[in-house]
Simulated assay, not measured.
Amino acid sequence: MIRFADRASLLAALDNLPAPCAVSTGAARARQAELTKPPGSLGRLEDIAVFMAGWQGTAVPRLHHVRGAVFAGNHGIAQQGVSAFPPEVTRQMVDNFMAGGAAINVLARCCEAQLSIVPLDLDRPTGDIAQEPAMSDAECLKALNAGAAVLTPETQLLFVGEMGIGNTTPAAALAAAAFGGDGNQWCGYGTGVGPDGLARKIKAVDRALALHHEHCTDPFETLRRLGGREIAAMAGAILAARLHRIPVLLDGFIASAAIAPFTARQPRFADHCIAAHCSAEAAHQILLERLGLQPLLRLGLRLGEGSGAALAVPIIRAAIATHGAMATFAEAKVARS
């Protein structure tokens, strides 16, 4: 199991990221050329099959074990009225997750994913990022390692989600710190805040950037100062997945923002990720472009929880199934021209 001992070990991991297996990638492409279909006729399904082959290190990948994890944390910035819901909803929704009654529970069952729910010190909100760092070094490391710990040896595909009232505000701040811009560019309506709430979000993000920007000299410090426990946990899980060569289905704006600091340091960090969808949050498309990812789905989602990623799992299953189970031209005795 991956564990980050300190800031230095996290940065060392980022500077030594594994790549997919080029031999397996080539073999998978060669197999695609032999299947009974016109070249390229299955579109992105073909690309996904080759992608999975490269990360699994085999010409014919399999998908038996999908792992989903939802991390929950509370934010000091929520007290500034940046959300349509009060902070106590975070714990109430965690109870709902545990009881199996939320959208992600239903969607995880539909896509046959094993789902973990990981609440992170819900009784202790992070610091208000407009006034102080979100977390101490120790708190940030604890959250990163909580994320890394959700991976199991049999995991072949990971998706992560979040629950944390107010967390689109730190997500916007992380995106701005990583890729430039201000609150006006990166803030949106989240789960339904009105124009006054949006104005408060923009102001809070701009204050946070002014306070912390000069100190955000590396990804750890950026996450520590501007993030949140559930955001750092998602980042830790996605980094650990890369280190284990496990592909990741990336969910919405907040999950994407969680890896923005990593991508600012390593532009190809998201090479093991597939963007499951583009959410209704206005800046998500911009963020995906910065990450170098094209979304599979556009369904107008803005729920979080990993819901968009869960919806995309059947597409990955279909890509792998067609790649592995279709007959070749030789097997089917079909003429190629």
Rank of each mutant, 00 (worst) to 15 (best):
168 T>A: 06
27 A>G: 13
11 L>T: 07
118 V>Y: 09
237 A>T: 01
165 I>D: 07
222 T>V: 03
245 R>V: 02
169 T>W: 08
22 A>H: 03
77 I>W: 10
92 Q>G: 14
110 C>M: 14
301 L>R: 01
244 H>T: 01
79 Q>F: 12
19 A>K: 14
110 C>G: 13
125 P>H: 13
284 H>K: 04
198 L>I: 10
235 A>N: 08
215 H>V: 14
322 T>H: 14
337 S>K: 12
44 R>E: 11
88 E>P: 11
330 A>T: 15
272 H>Y: 07
199 A>H: 13
15 D>S: 12
297 L>A: 06
328 T>C: 13
312 A>L: 13
238 I>H: 04
136 S>M: 10
176 A>N: 08
277 H>I: 07
178 A>E: 05
263 T>R: 08
42 L>E: 12
323 H>Y: 01
3 R>S: 09
185 Q>D: 14
111 C>S: 10
238 I>F: 09
197 G>R: 09
317 R>K: 10
99 A>W: 12
262 F>E: 03
69 A>W: 00
311 L>C: 11
67 R>W: 02
168 T>C: 04
146 A>W: 01
112 E>W: 10
134 A>C: 11
90 T>C: 10
12 A>T: 03
134 A>N: 10
190 G>K: 01
172 A>Y: 07
261 P>G: 00
159 F>H: 12
322 T>E: 13
276 A>F: 02
313 V>P: 04
117 I>E: 12
26 G>N: 12
231 I>F: 10
123 D>I: 04
288 L>V: 01
5 A>M: 11
244 H>W: 01
102 A>C: 15
236 G>W: 01
319 A>H: 11
72 A>P: 15
7 R>S: 08
74 N>P: 11
78 A>G: 10
12 A>S: 06
225 R>N: 00
211 L>F: 06
152 T>D: 04
198 L>G: 09
233 A>Q: 06
2 I>T: 15
323 H>R: 03
23 V>H: 12
277 H>W: 06
226 L>Y: 04
23 V>P: 05
250 L>M: 03
266 Q>M: 11
102 A>H: 06
294 Q>F: 12
309 A>W: 01
176 A>K: 05
213 H>Q: 13
326 M>S: 08
207 R>E: 15
62 R>N: 13
146 A>R: 02
211 L>P: 01
34 E>Q: 15
286 I>F: 14
118 V>N: 08
255 A>M: 05
290 R>P: 04
292 G>M: 05
294 Q>R: 15
4 F>L: 05
272 H>W: 07
156 Q>W: 00
58 T>G: 13
300 G>E: 08
122 L>A: 09
46 E>F: 00
64 H>P: 03
140 C>D: 09
267 P>C: 02
39 P>N: 11
232 A>F: 00
16 N>K: 09
238 I>Y: 06
21 C>S: 14
289 E>M: 11
44 R>D: 08
240 A>T: 02
63 L>R: 06
16 N>A: 15
260 A>S: 09
185 Q>M: 14
107 L>H: 04
304 G>W: 09
194 G>Y: 08
199 A>E: 12
253 F>V: 01
